[in-house]
């Protein structure tokens, strides 16, 4: 398999996951604000989670619902629209590898988004828009799962998807902690609701309830999302998937070493203690560094080509990493 194609499959996996994650994130927070109309800064935390503060501030002078929605739905920089474009461009150059129906689905996603994106600016049409987007994403993921042979191309999509997931989960947990610690927010009595929204952002509420027979509380949520190996969006699970997919790739020594290192970081730390000592934020920073190391090692091992031969950088979608 061509290195360039491998790289594009990987980024396709990431972008598609990013579309779904961002859609879900907006959906959940739109619900949350209806429960907590007095708590300010919810929209701000969406910008924090996506790590796009600087870009946002360059475009808008005020953080409010409308601007955040415009930014996350329709902006060129880091929106759902941009992630769909990223997925589509990477798919466009790998069409000969992916089952042809998936290209049709990606086109449908892109056509739907372009037609209806303004629906999501106001609350009334937002749910419908985001649900449809999440639905098509799931359809594509399911279609690939059901039709692509589990060999090299699929492994790269899977690695991309799971790294992106792990990345998103750590960001959401991180912002949850920061909000709790921020006295200005006056979370206080709403702590429980906040952790529930962290869970629902990751579609984790039901699975959490099935495994943790206790009320929703910060300690259990953090432990579940970072260390649970069964839950598909748990960081430990995502890393295990990345490791498994990498097992069957050629020349994988260095990549596996980096992945194992990240797995150990998660396994060997008591995240509940870290949370209670207000050190979880620093710990998550470390996990994020590990994830970025994995990305770097994948690039060195499997994607590296003569960069000077690339077309100009703005034409190379594979170089963009929107959320950092």
């Amino acid at each position: 398999m061509l290195s360039r194609v491998a790289e594009r499959m990987y980024w396709f996996g990431r972008y598609l996951e990013r579309v779904e994650n961002t859609a879900r994130l907006i959906n959940v927070n739109t619900n949350l604000i209806m429960d907590l109309p007095k708590v300010k800064h919810i929209w701000e935390s969406l910008i924090e989670i996506t790590g796009t503060r600087e870009a946002f501030d360059q475009r808008f002078s005020r953080i409010d619902e409308r601007n955040v929605m415009k930014f996350l739905l329709d902006d060129e920089f880091s929106s759902i629209k941009a992630a769909i474009l990223g997925a589509r461009e990477n798919a466009r150059t790998t069409r000969e590898i992916m089952p042809s129906e998936s290209w049709v689905l990606i086109n449908e996603l892109s056509i739907y988004m372009n037609k209806h994106k303004t629906k999501g600016i106001n609350r009334s049409g937002r749910h419908e828009l985001l649900d449809e987007i999440i639905g098509i994403c799931n359809q594509i993921t399911g279609y690939l799962e059901g039709t692509m042979s589990a060999d090299t191309p699929y492994h790269f999509i899977k690695i991309g998807r799971n790294l992106e997931r792990a990345d998103m989960t750590t960001r959401i947990v991180d912002v949850g902690c920061l909000n709790l610690m921020n006295p200005e927010l006056e979370i206080g009595q709403y702590e429980n609701i906040l952790w529930m929204s962290v869970l629902t952002s990751l579609n984790a509420y039901q699975m959490y309830r099935q495994q943790v027979q206790d009320t929703v509380n910060g300690e259990d949520v953090v432990d579940f999302l970072l260390k649970n190996r069964q839950f598909p969006r748990g960081v430990a699970h995502c890393l295990a998937e990345v490791a498994q997919a990498s097992q069957s790739l050629p020349r994988n020594d260095n990549a596996l070493r980096t992945i194992t290192h990240a797995q150990r970081t998660i396994d060997q730390n008591d995240v509940i203690a870290l949370l209670n000592n207000e050190k979880l934020h620093d710990f998550i920073d470390n996990v994020q560094l590990d994830l970025s190391d994995i990305n770097g090692e994948l690039t060195t091992t499997w994607f590296q080509r003569n960069v000077d031969q690339e077309l100009n950088p703005s034409q190379s979608f594979t170089q963009t990493r929107l959320f950092t």
């Binding site: 061509l2 360039r4 194609v5 000969e96 590898i97 042809s100 080509r305 003569n306 031969q309 690339e310």
Partner: peptide, 13 residues
């Protein structure tokens, strides 16, 4: 490329 099952390459590949 897809229909032939051949690799689609660019010069830099």
């Amino acid at each position: 490329a897809q229909r032939m099952g051949a690799e689609l390459v660019e010069g830099s590949d």
